[in-house]
Design a protein around this nucleic acid. Structure first.
Lengths: 343, 343
DNA sequence: TTGTATGCGTTATCAA
DNA sequence: TTGATAACGCATACAA
């Protein structure tokens, strides 16, 4: 019964007493084979524990039935929600999804990309370290559909799916001004990240439009957008003289906001009375924070789903044209900016 | 220049004016080919943008150079840290890692598993929904190394890597008793999960050994181990009459603990004075909580690394014997159980 | 309806 | 040192 290697179509054919072509037909065009032989073949497959060898099928077909997503930062739950959206869309299309993580390192990103091209993935989704990197263009040139996720593809060379970050910055700061704040800090970094710049720009735009003094909008650059950086930003904030100290902070992502929140509470500040905080992304932990975090919500799963649909379209539809999809962010107000109780 | 499909060794051979075997040699045994031809071939490869087709190589080799990890719950950062550890070990062995997520659903798990077997992955790591499920045994029977992660493989059929959960429960509760607590709640669920039972058992063991009254250790079962469940457990706790209400809670994971923490703070309790809280896993968000969370630390990355080494060994070493590795958990005391300041 | 033959891209064996 | 050739497992065009 047990043979050393995995049983192949040939083994199944022999066992069922049919030719190898018939076995293949049972799998791929069952309607052309008679019920009797089909059943015989199916039993043989079950008996032998036959499982199709995907490599062989793929070699024959020229391409795989797999998509891949290279995410930027595995420690940020935001990307997992995006991945989940991609996964669901892939599932609908009967595709596999391989998830890789570059951790923000260009080198790792390239290693993953190389491997994925070797695997001949049918499509590639990526939140790149550098959206302008030339290896992305090279992959696209090979005919592999590439979709940029959570970044805008400059120059329209790729499809991309993102949220309107300028608008996101606008609604965050607009909300704070509505809550009565007149001195606001924008916290985030590094500035090399396009999103940081755009969210900051949105903040500045609306600040000016509302007639606020430019000096009262402080930008506090950080080395990264992590919890740790958020804490240290909080310390820097605390170091400012009281009369110039912002009464509210807009953090370019929730990790930063969570760090800031923690530091502020530890320092004895009341949230939002002493310091109001707005984050960005609305990850699950935002709502679950000790003081539930107001955040600019990105439709995380939808982002992923839409991106997956675009790769699939580019891969299958000869009429495909690149699109830059832009989603509208939405403010979710919670206790970190709005005090429920008035004492 | 541009040909429709990806260039193959044949194309490279033609372009370099050598035979296809020579091209293969350049890739796999460069020492046997003369410097001059090697260089010529390499230039041709670069010119054409040749990238080895992994499917073909794999078909030839019979197995892939990929490992896979099927994780149980993508929304729990714990599993991402484990995955990261696996990834690092895979990288060292020059292997790819495919990450899948069953989300606790047996059906998804099986779909992923099927696909991975079709891909002929070289080894499989999994935190299974049900460690006793027979499909795992079937995969192992095919000769694919299977390692159970974060669960103990009962019966020794597989290798497994886990933490001593009974001990984890012991040190958590021991710590609370040391802090002076005499009424403690253990929160977690569902009870079908072996770890929940074991951590609870450890708690009961040490409770008895320390001579405490059995009645004063309350088990509060939950439907799952999520932030939301933690919050609702907090509400149930608050509903208990004050004199029977526990002064401390041991949650079987950090997500629960974070939810409980949030609910308790929202209800105006002081942490740890009114309620002390211990979590389990020590995920990154534990330290970053508003009140930093005391937690039973699992060596998350180490778990992953060790698991990967075991699959690799099982795959390559004919002398391989199954092992059940057990790591020792460690208490990380933070502000949620120990008040720094005495007013 | 079923069988036979060919090729996908790679590696390895053997001969030159 | 290099070249020719077979084989991996599957899908398909074509023949029977």
């Amino acid at each position: 019964m047990a043979i050393g290697r995995s049983p192949s179509v040939k083994d199944v054919a022999a066992s069922a007493g049919v030719s190898l072509g018939t076995v293949s037909n049972v799998m791929n065009r069952p309607e052309v084979v008679s019920a009797a032989t089909r059943e015989r073949v199916e039993r043989a497959m079950a008996d032998l524990g036959f499982i199709r060898n995907e490599s062989a099928r793929q070699l024959r077909a020229g391409t795989s039935r797999a998509l891949a997503y290279v995410m930027l930062d595995g420690s940020n739950p935001f990307f997992h929600d995006v991945a989940q959206g991609i996964e669901l869309a892939a599932e609908d299309a009967d595709m596999s999804l391989f998830i890789c993580n570059s951790n923000g390192r260009p080198g790792r990103e390239e290693v993953h990309l190389d491997r994925l091209v070797q695997q001949r993935v049918q499509g590639l989704l990526i939140t790149p370290v550098d959206p302008g990197a030339k290896h992305l263009r090279e992959i696209a040139k090979r005919g592999i559909p590439v979709v940029i996720v959570d970044r805008v593809a400059a120059g329209g060379e790729f499809c991309s799916v993102a949220v309107d970050d300028v608008l996101g910055g606008r609604i965050a700061v607009e909300h704070l001004v509505e809550q009565g704040h007149r001195r606001v800090a924008v916290i985030g970094g590094p500035e090399s990240i396009g999103q940081v710049r755009e969210r900051l720009e949105g903040a500045r735009q609306v600040w000016a439009e509302l007639g606020m003094a430019a000096d009262d909008l402080t930008f506090l650059p950080t080395a990264g957008s992590t919890v740790v950086e958020g804490r240290s930003a909080g310390e820097r904030l605390a170091g400012l003289p009281v009369r110039r100290r912002p009464t509210a902070a807009f953090c370019v992502n929730d990790l930063l906001a969570l760090g800031l929140l923690q530091q502020a509470i530890g320092a004895g500040l009341r949230i939002p009375e002493d310091l109001a905080i707005v984050g960005f992304d609305d990850i699950e932990f935002a709502a679950a924070a000790a003081v539930p975090l107001t955040s600019v919500r990105q439709p995380r799963q939808e982002l992923g789903r839409a991106a997956a649909k675009l790769v699939l379209d580019e891969s299958g539809n000869p009429e495909h044209r690149h699109e830059q999809l832009s989603f509208v962010p939405e403010l979710v107000a919670r206790a970190s900016t709005v005090s429920r109780r008035n004492y």
